[in-house]
Design a protein around this nucleic acid. Structure first.
Lengths: 143, 143
DNA sequence: CTCTCTAGCTTGTTTTTTGCAAGTAACCAA
DNA sequence: TTGGTTACTTGCAAAAAACAAGCTAGAGAG
């Protein structure tokens, strides 16, 4: 479970943690799409394999990007949430979306969040952050 | 040389293009470290393999992130430069560096750019952009 | 105690990355 | 013009990672 750390560079530091094909998509699901359960991630369009998802959730928890707690209402399942460290990747997600908004001419239908980011990126970020501000308890009311 | 495009999402769109271990580091070298030649990328601390570097340079050129032109002064080599599309990833690079600045407690010595970003991120971005604003000619005077 | 639902794990296969060695093309110097 | 140097480029075998599909385990529900 150890991370490698290819160099002292801040870019490579982040890439060594979340620079694979899937980690950032899972964080996107948790942070921007209000997904909090294993089955939610499975159902995303990108079709991640179950073993990869399981591994990435473990990694992301181990590295402190997300927390994993058993759902008190339906104790069969676990709730995945961003930590502050994970939520602090929001500017990276937003910057990436703005770039894609400009250059992905192929993509037909853009998510509504793209509109919001285009009009008011700071307000968008604040609203997302506000969603998670009342610490761990907020998720219990989701289901 | 075809890109896959796992879904319609703007995050996955960008990841499908530059979401591997190396592409963003090459762009970092070109955009933030004034590296423009093959041997410069080879000499970076992360130690990329020659075949991967060659492949990624091809991909980045094919996807329009960088341009490759023969050096008019030393015609043995090629000059790699960011396109506007590549340079527009600067906010992603900066957001990533700011995140690492906050969370990479292990990293001992930070690059001076981190200080500049911390003090004045917008000014930093503008100065980097200005460096590349006089289109292709600017690189000829580098060597 | 069995059934179902959620969340994984296992296994076998394919793809990608890696490390290294060899190859090629432009230029330079004798 | 020939031999060396620089700047890449290509090829190959081994290792690592991703993938697909089927299997399992644990927590309730009936």
């Amino acid at each position: 479970m150890d991370r490698k750390n290819r160099s002292n560079c801040p870019i490579s530091y982040a890439l060594d943690l979340i620079g694979d094909k899937w980690s950032l998509l899972i964080l996107r699901d948790i942070i921007l799409r209000d997904k909090h359960f294993y089955k939610d991630f499975i159902s995303s369009d990108e079709a991640i394999a179950t073993n990869i998802l399981s591994n990435r959730l473990k990694m992301l928890e181990y590295d402190g990007f997300i927390s994993k707690t058993r759902d008190t209402i339906d104790r069969k399942r676990f709730i995945y949430n961003p930590t502050e460290k994970g939520l602090d990747l929001l500017p990276v997600l937003i910057a990436t979306m703005r770039w894609s908004d400009k250059y992905s001419t192929e993509i037909k239908q853009r998510p509504p969040s793209i509109e919001m980011i285009r009009n008011d990126p700071i307000g968008f970020e604040n609203r997302i952050r506000a969603k998670f501000s009342n610490t761990p308890t907020l998720l219990d009311r989701h289901h």
